Simulated assay, not measured.
Amino acid sequence: MTPAGCDPLHGLDRRLTPYSGSVALVALKGKVAAISFTEGRPARVAVPVVDLCDAPAGARDRQLVFGAGVTVIDERAGWAFVQAAADHYCGWVPLTALGQGGDVTHVVCAPATHIYREASIKRGEVMALPIGAGLGAIREEGGFVVTAEGFVPRQHLRAVTAPEADPVAVAERLLGAPYLWGGNGYDGIDCSGLVQLSYGLCGIACPADSDQQWHGFGQVLPEEVPVIRGDLFFWKGHVAMAVDDTCLIHANGHHMAVRYEPIRDTMERIAASGEGIYLGRKRRL
């Protein structure tokens, strides 16, 4: 139990601090009062999607998808405390969700795909994977990319060395996907998850939560600067992407889905609801 008034993280952001409350990465020596420190061990997510929780069996903060690299820092009662390689987000996942895996060479660029047992769509599938999942290619065979897990349609994959050019085009593939707070996959995604995924497939590092994105992106644009495709509109607790100078795309709880919505309507609706003040518009240069 933490004594009243004591901050074990010394003001550090829990989401980005590789410290389980007992064990921390060695880089935090002198910064947190951990019982022990570790270099951690590498692992990869070995299930389609897993919740990244704030405690063992706790509430979901975010999600990680198949192939995501992590550093395992602590283990407790079947759970692992990890830090994600892509955005440094920390949390707990079931140990059973992790494996070793190899290098990721390709990423799923379709809304979802299947891994098949053989180079045939008629011979049964091994698992379904969401957009953003990472795989290691061994070779190509009959229109499929062969991986350690099975055969994936070549059309559904993109080499990590050939990122996409338009984050908005990525987001548009998820139109209609259900809203899920903290979600990062096609079966459920939230506003910041959609932005992170869209930029990630374009090879652009992006934080996971909307407040981190607000602080991590560029300067606030003056109102007189014309809106262009890809501009990000921020409210306290929400983010949306401009499709053009009149329309946004965002995952939102009002529609409970990824939807297009006119910029003016969105502004008026959120202001009327009192759900979050408008912070401004930013552009990822």
Rank of each mutant, 00 (worst) to 15 (best):
P42L: 10
I138E: 15
Y199P: 04
C53E: 03
Q213R: 03
W79E: 00
E118I: 00
F81G: 01
R158E: 05
A80R: 04
E141R: 15
H250G: 09
M1L: 13
C53Y: 01
H106G: 03
D190N: 04
G99T: 08
S273D: 13
T2S: 08
E118K: 12
Y186N: 10
S273K: 11
P42S: 14
S210H: 01
D87K: 11
V170Y: 05
D265Y: 04
A34H: 03
G188P: 09
F151T: 01
A205G: 15
A257Q: 13
A24R: 00
C247P: 02
P153Q: 06
P94G: 09
R281M: 14
G21V: 03
P153I: 04
D103Q: 14
A133Q: 01
R41K: 12
G78D: 03
E39L: 12
G5E: 07
V23C: 10
Y186F: 10
D74Y: 01
I204E: 14
C6S: 09
V152I: 13
L135R: 01
A97Y: 06
L279Q: 15
G230P: 11
T113L: 09
Y19W: 06
G132P: 03
A162H: 11
V50E: 08
A27M: 02
G134N: 01
P3M: 02
I35S: 15
I73T: 00
G102R: 13
R229A: 11
A251L: 09
V72F: 10
R123D: 12
T113F: 06
G124A: 11
K31E: 11
A33S: 13
A57M: 04
H254S: 14
I131L: 15
V227D: 02
C206M: 15
A59Y: 06
S20M: 07
V239W: 04
S120L: 05
R264H: 08
Q196T: 05
N252F: 07
L9P: 05
A77R: 08
F81C: 00
R76Y: 02
A43H: 02
H250T: 09
I35E: 15
A4E: 11
I35P: 01
Y278A: 12
R44C: 04
D87N: 14
L157W: 08
P178N: 10
V107K: 10
P111A: 12
G188A: 09
I121S: 11
G237N: 05
H106K: 03
A110N: 09
G183T: 06
E172I: 03
E141C: 14
D74S: 03
D245Y: 05
H254F: 10
L12H: 12
V47M: 12
P42M: 07
A257W: 06
Q212C: 04
V146S: 10
G132M: 05
A177W: 07
N252T: 14
V160R: 14
R284W: 11
S192K: 03
L12I: 00
G237S: 07
G58W: 03
V32K: 06
A169N: 05
V23P: 00
H10V: 08
V227W: 10
A165T: 15
W214T: 02
L95T: 13
V243A: 13
G193D: 10
C90R: 00
N252C: 13
G124N: 09
E261V: 14
C202H: 12
H88M: 07
S192H: 04
L95M: 14
L129E: 00
V258H: 07
N184I: 09
S192C: 04
I228W: 04
G188C: 11
A169H: 05
A159C: 09
D61A: 14
V70F: 07
P94E: 07
T38G: 02
